[in-house]
């Protein structure tokens, strides 16, 4: 049974990924919709990472000294300065570990 459920899940995730790439789908994206969709990347990616930081144990993080918050500040700073994904991860994860496990 589990096997069958997994197969059905695979079909669902694949359909959500493929559907709008199908050329025969009767939709045409006008310039307005395209312009609207240009904002999808910053919107979705932000909506993925912000709750990881600010919602912990189903509650809003309010402490300024929270390791997630401090490390996020460092990540934002480093990403602005270096614009480099490796540096951002390296420095902010180090900051996170320091604050959480050392201090």
């Amino acid at each position: 049974m589990t096997l069958l459920i997994i197969l059905m899940m695979a079909v669902i995730t694949f359909i959500t990924r493929y559907l709008f790439l199908h050329p025969r789908l009767p939709i045409k994206l006008g310039p307005k919709v395209s312009c609207f969709l240009n904002f999808s990347a910053p919107a979705v990616l932000t909506a993925i990472w912000v709750p990881i930081i600010f919602v912990q144990d189903e509650r809003l993080v309010t402490s300024v000294f929270d390791p997630y918050l401090i490390a996020t500040m460092s990540a934002i700073l480093v990403s602005i300065i270096t614009k480099n994904i490796y540096w951002t991860i390296l420095i902010s994860v180090t900051a996170f570990t320091m604050v959480r496990y050392v201090l």
Partner: peptide, 17 residues
């Protein structure tokens, strides 16, 4: 707290954009 790495990756991709 290992999920912070995921947040850091997305920060690195979103903020400079």
């Amino acid at each position: 707290g290992l999920d912070f790495a995921i947040a850091a990756t997305f920060i690195a991709l979103v903020i400079p954009s």
